[in-house]
Design a protein around this nucleic acid. Structure first.
Length: 267
DNA sequence: AGAATTACCTGAGCGC
DNA sequence: TGCGCTCAGGTAATTC
């Protein structure tokens, strides 16, 4: 599922191709995503020039002069750059045709994605206004995490995945960062020491940065789904051997999300 | 206020 | 082959 690194990889790939280009046509084939698609979005987009593509958490922000296209990939969404005349298939919900003949296509089987038009200051939009610091901006560090965890009884993994605490950390990277930091996912957040918070914050940043550096992506390849080139230590490996000590990795559910950890390496 | 739960959605994988 | 079931989970809304 696309998390922050996959969204950033997408941005880095499409921005050089599309920025500065005019949107000649827009086609929407869906109106009912989890958040209703802005009515008339195709008309609003057509004729505008894409100035830049920014990212906030897992949201992509397309600066279209007269307003912003706010896009979220949800769990199963991805963007493709295709030749202009590529026929659309099932779950191809939106097309943007650019003046250089490139087609930007949004595909999302589970419809957890978001397509919204925002005029004015996009960062003040309710979906973005309450998002916590960007993990790669330097503002998310041990001191911040320590302060955010005080008197919090919720499991540390759930807290790290709370977008109001830090932007863009989903289930996969929360599991991996906790493994690297040697901290059990079900530890009450308030029990972490400052030292542990520093370690965890650093590992969150590191694992995300590594994944972006590798060019982690998410898209359909053939009949299956290709994930991240990054090798996971714990995610999806419940019951298998710990890559560090060989013990059997345990699995539990926190907030209805699967969590995998090493009972020996993580305290 | 914080914590827990629910809703949204469809493909994959499973047992029968 | 196909039916019914469970699972996957990002995020906002709702409830406790």
């Amino acid at each position: 599922m696309p998390e922050l690194p996959e969204v950033e990889t997408t941005r880095l790939r499409i921005a050089p191709e599309l920025c500065g280009k005019k949107i000649m046509a827009a086609e929407l084939r869906v109106s009912k995503l989890r958040v209703p698609v802005t009515a008339g979005l195709d008309t609003l987009l057509t004729g505008t020039t894409l100035r830049s593509i920014e990212r906030r958490g897992k949201y992509l922000l397309f600066d279209c002069e007269s307003g912003w296209l706010l896009l979220h990939l949800g769990m199963t969404g991805f963007l493709q750059l295709l030749p202009a005349d590529t026929p659309h298939g099932k779950h191809d919900h939106a097309d943007l045709l650019f003046e250089n003949g490139q087609l930007l296509r949004f595909h999302d089987p589970r419809k957890f994605g978001t397509l919204l038009w925002v005029s004015g200051d996009v960062y003040r939009h309710p979906l973005l206004a309450a998002i916590g610091p960007e993990p790669l901006s330097g503002t998310f560090d041990g001191a911040y995490l320590y302060a955010a965890t005080r008197k919090r009884a919720v499991a540390i993994k759930q807290l790290v995945m709370d977008s109001a605490v830090v932007a863009g950390v989903g289930n996969i990277y929360a599991n991996e960062a906790l493994f690297r930091a040697g901290i059990r996912p079900d530890r009450p957040a308030g029990t972490l020491t400052l030292q542990e918070c520093e370690l965890l914050a650093a590992q969150v940043c590191t694992v995300l940065a590594e994944s972006i550096a590798i060019g982690s992506s998410f898209r359909i390849v053939g009949a299956g789904v290709a994930y991240h080139p990054l090798d996971f230590n714990v995610y999806g490996r419940g019951g298998q051997a710990c890559t560090n000590c060989g013990a059997n990795l345990e699995e539990l559910r926190l907030g209805n999300r699967s969590s995998v950890f090493c009972p020996v390496c993580q305290k």
